[in-house]
C-alpha cells in the first residue's frame, strides 16, 4: 500500500475496518471485521451517530444490528483517534433495504465525525467508467443519471427515468446500449421489452444483450485497443492509452458516424429560437 510523508509505513500505519453481512475474502485484509445483520445497516449507522453524540442507546437496540455496545464503542474510539478517516460504501448499502436512506445516514455520520477529526465518505463505483458517465452527465445536464430529454431539456427522476423503469414500463421504441449488458442483469419485463424493440448494442464482446438485439456492432475495447479517458471513483480522470491495435472502430467513432448519418435526415426540431432571459 502507498507510503506517504505522514504514513511512512504504508499499510502498517493504517487501520482497515470491514462491515458486511458475511465474512468475505476482504475480511482477511482488514484489521477488524464487523458482521452486521442483513437489512440493519440504517439502524447500525443511526445507533453509531447517537452514541457518538452521547445519546443513550440500549443494549437491546444494539443487539438488533447483530453487534454489541462494546464493539461499537471500540469502533467509535478508533474513529475519533484516526487522523484522517474514510468510509467507502457500495451497493450493499445503497441497493438493500433502506436504499438511499442508508447512504444518507452514512454521509451524515461522516459529516458529523468532523466535529472530532477529519472524516470523508466515498462511494465505491461499479466496474468500467461508471464515474466518468456520471461526471459528464452532470456537467452537460446537471444530473448524474435517470435523465429524460423528451421535452428537449434534461429532467431527472430516478425511479421514473432510470433505464430499468423505462424498460419495464415499455416506454421506449428503441434502445441503444453502449458498453453494458442489461440483458444479463435486468428484470425479465425489461429484458422482454429490449427484445421487442429495435435494440442496438455497441460492445467489444457478444453479450446477452447482443443476442436479443437487432444490431450488434463490435467495437475496440477502450483502454486496450482504443484511447479515451476513464474517471477513477474519486473523479480523477486518467488518460487511456491503447496497448494493442484493433480491427474494430472505437465506440466514439461509431457514435460519430451514426450522428453524421442522422444529421443528413430531415430535421424534426423546432427552428423557434429561445429567449435567454425569458424567465424572471
Amino acid at each position: 500500500m502507498q507510503k506517504s510523508k505522514f504514513l511512512p509505513r504504508g499499510r502498517k500505519d493504517r487501520t482497515v475496518v470491514l462491515v458486511d453481512i458475511r465474512e468475505t475474502k476482504s475480511a482477511k485484509a482488514a484489521d477488524l471485521f464487523l458482521q452486521v445483520r442483513p437489512g440493519k445497516d440504517f439502524e447500525m449507522l443511526t445507533i453509531l451517530r447517537a452514541m457518538i453524540k452521547g445519546e443513550h442507546v440500549t443494549d437491546d437496540q444494539v443487539a438488533e444490528t447483530g453487534l454489541t455496545t462494546d464493539v461499537l464503542q471500540d469502533l467509535i474510539e478508533r474513529m475519533k483517534k484516526a487522523k484522517f478517516g474514510v468510509m467507502f460504501f457500495g451497493m450493499g448499502l445503497s441497493m438493500t433495504r433502506g436504499k438511499h436512506m442508508n447512504a444518507a445516514a452514512l454521509l451524515t455520520l461522516a459529516a458529523e465525525m468532523n466535529a472530532f477529526t477529519k472524516f470523508v465518505a466515498m462511494p465505491m463505483r461499479g466496474h468500467g467508467n461508471v464515474t466518468g458517465a456520471d461526471v459528464i452527465m452532470r456537467w452537460q445536464t446537471g444530473y448524474p443519471f435517470g435523465i429524460s430529454f423528451n421535452r428537449g431539456y434534461p429532467r431527472y427522476n430516478p425511479g421514473e427515468f432510470s433505464t430499468v423503469d423505462i424498460l419495464v414500463r415499455g416506454d421506449t421504441d428503441c434502445a441503444f446500449i453502449i458498453g453494458a449488458d442489461p440483458g444479463a442483469t435486468m428484470p425479465r419485463p425489461a429484458i422482454e421489452h429490449l427484445a421487442k424493440v429495435p435494440t442496438i448494442v455497441l460492445d467489444p464482446h457478444v453479450t446477452h444483450t447482443s443476442r436479443l438485439s437487432r444490431v450488434h456492432i463490435t467495437t475496440a475495447p477502450a483502454g486496450i485497443a482504443a484511447p479515451g479517458t476513464g474517471y477513477r471513483m474519486d473523479e480523477v480522470p486518467m488518460p487511456l492509452r491503447p496497448a494493442l491495435n484493433s480491427p474494430y472502430p472505437s465506440d466514439e467513432e461509431v457514435i460519430r458516424r451514426i450522428k453524421e448519418a442522422i444529421a443528413e435526415k430531415p430535421d424534426w426540431m423546432t427552428d423557434q429560437p429561445q429567449m435567454i432571459f425569458s424567465q424572471v
Partner: peptide, 8 residues
Amino acid sequence: TQAFIRTK
C-alpha cells in the same frame, strides 16, 4: 430554474 431547449 430556466431550461434551455435543444435547437439546431
